[in-house]
Design a protein around this nucleic acid. Structure first.
Lengths: 138, 138
DNA sequence: CTTGACTCTCCAGCTATAAAGAGACTCTAA
DNA sequence: TTAGAGTCTCTTTATAGCTGGAGAGTCAAG
């Protein structure tokens, strides 16, 4: 019985305002298993530890970097198993770069196709009865 | 009663195999109003005109170029009103290029952030009890 | 004791584009 | 006449990440 003033746990609204997320989102994360509560109050209210804030910061950061909640959960599982997740995260972020490169490549190809198409565009071509828009013919 | 052998309309399976789309997709398009049937057979089967093939080609092409079905429907509405949709389509494709540019820009920024982060990555840093992954600290 | 803020669970919906399946009906060829 | 292929409508599912509401229970202040 040493410390005085150690909170038994935050209620969800407090965690929401401290983290900047909505109550709904926090419940959603808890349902997914991303954000375990330390328990429930007598009345059934979720109680969260201070550590939840760091966890949410971690989630937010990886989400910003484009990882899915599922991937983030996998990272957290490594952490929760007591291991440093850094190596795991590094690999995932590397894959994320590859995904991004693939997307950029696709977008660039599409952009080029669009631009070439528009380069030869005739906004008012002769009406061809069979074709909806003659410019689109390949 | 001049012509002989003019088909009264294709059934959906024929249109599916000729267009390369699935029956499900064609029904979906018809429900959306993208692909009007010319009517129904006595037994209630959808009947499609030859023109449906051109319409589907048009849809397929604009979808490939990244327009949504809703935008495509707007283009088709212009066509169905008896006007040439080319000018309309040109504008939409121009906007599509802008959208793509925006996406590419976002992806490049994200890629840069990821790469900078990984450049200084330590896969096995000293364990900091408070932080899940020290590399992610901003 | 009351009031109002907070929280609970459960259910529905949103974006877009279909796919999957159930149960019934139709059509065609042998 | 019958088998089997095709088609019908209607409902549900999928993805991802939430958001909103209903109706009921909890809690702290006055």
């Amino acid at each position: 019985m040493a410390a005085i003033g150690i909170a038994a746990g935050m209620k969800i609204g407090v965690l929401a305002s401290r983290s900047g997320l909505t109550v709904k989102t926090l419940r959603y994360y808890e349902d997914l298993g991303l954000l375990p509560a330390i328990g429930r109050s007598e009345g059934g209210y979720r109680l969260f530890a201070e550590e939840s804030l760091r966890r949410l910061e971690f989630i937010r950061r990886l989400k910003t970097l484009g990882l899915s909640l599922e991937e983030i959960q996998d990272c957290l599982a490594v952490h929760d198993a007591g291991e440093l997740p850094c190596g795991d995260i590094e690999i995932r972020l590397g894959r994320q770069i590859e995904r991004i490169d693939g997307q950029i490549k696709e977008l660039r190809q599409l952009r080029m196709e669009l631009q070439e198409l528009l380069a030869g565009w005739q906004s008012d071509p002769a009406k061809d009865g069979n074709v909806i828009c003659p410019n689109l013919q390949v």
